[in-house]
Amino acid sequence: MRILLLIAALTLGLGFTPATFNSAWAVNPSEVLSDPVLEKRARGLSAGLRCMVCQNQSIDDSDADLARDLRVLVRERLVQGDTDDQVLDYLVARYGEFVLLKPRLEKRTVLLWGFPVLMLLGGAGFIWLTRRKANRSQPPIVPLSEAEKKRLEHLLDGK
């Protein structure tokens, strides 16, 4: 039993999860192109395209019928001679920007891409202002008077 737990922990620790193996199972052998260069391009494109059924998986990782149709469509477009950008443009025109797992940087998506940076800057500004205000609210350090020094010495000596 311990050996099985150890194997499971090592497998998960190394990143071999079911999702890792799923991409090998999702693409059917009948979909694979005979030209290895085109197949590599197809795999690269399909890894960046969202499955419209699963929504958080690429079409390369999904077993959904629509994902299979999109994989076949990508391969057909590549065989017809389309460039990678032409294939992506075709799919975006047909399914919308949502089909891309990583949206393009455009006027419409600037806020999407810039929001994390704005949040980071806003948080840093908030911390800076809070610390600045805290430093201002502290009273100035006044040195001890001679009487206070003698009293402190008396208390520390225990006399």
Rank of each mutant, 00 (worst) to 15 (best):
Met1Asp: 07
Ile3His: 05
Leu4Lys: 10
Leu6Glu: 14
Leu10Val: 06
Thr11Tyr: 10
Leu12Thr: 13
Leu12Arg: 06
Gly15Arg: 09
Phe16Met: 09
Thr17Pro: 00
Thr17His: 10
Ala19Met: 10
Thr20Trp: 13
Thr20Ala: 11
Thr20Val: 12
Ala26His: 03
Asn28Ser: 15
Glu31Ser: 08
Val32Trp: 04
Val32Ser: 03
Glu39Phe: 01
Lys40Ala: 15
Arg41Ile: 11
Arg41Lys: 15
Arg43Tyr: 10
Leu45Ser: 01
Ser46Val: 11
Ala47Glu: 14
Gly48Ile: 08
Arg50Val: 00
Cys51Trp: 00
Met52Cys: 09
Met52Ile: 09
Met52Ala: 06
Val53Lys: 03
Val53Trp: 02
Gln55Tyr: 06
Asn56Trp: 04
Asn56Met: 07
Asn56Gln: 09
Gln57Asp: 09
Ser58Phe: 03
Ile59Pro: 02
Ile59Gly: 04
Asp65Ala: 13
Arg68Trp: 06
Arg71Met: 01
Val74Asn: 01
Val74Cys: 01
Arg75Tyr: 00
Val79Gln: 09
Gln80Ser: 05
Leu88Trp: 03
Tyr90Trp: 12
Leu91Phe: 03
Val92Gly: 00
Tyr95Asp: 00
Phe98His: 08
Val99Leu: 01
Val99Arg: 00
Leu101His: 02
Arg108Asn: 07
Arg108Tyr: 04
Thr109Ser: 02
Thr109Gly: 00
Leu111Met: 13
Leu112Cys: 11
Gly114Lys: 06
Leu118Trp: 06
Leu118Asp: 02
Leu120Tyr: 00
Gly123Trp: 03
Ala124Leu: 08
Ile127Tyr: 11
Thr130Trp: 05
Arg131Cys: 14
Ala134Tyr: 05
Ser137Glu: 08
Ser137Asp: 13
Gln138Lys: 14
Val142Glu: 15
Val142Ile: 11
Pro143Leu: 05
Leu144Lys: 11
Glu146Ala: 15
Glu148Ala: 10
Glu148Phe: 00
Lys149Arg: 09
Lys149Trp: 05
Lys149Asn: 07
Leu156Ala: 10
Leu156Thr: 12
Leu156Tyr: 10
Gly158Val: 02
Gly158Thr: 01
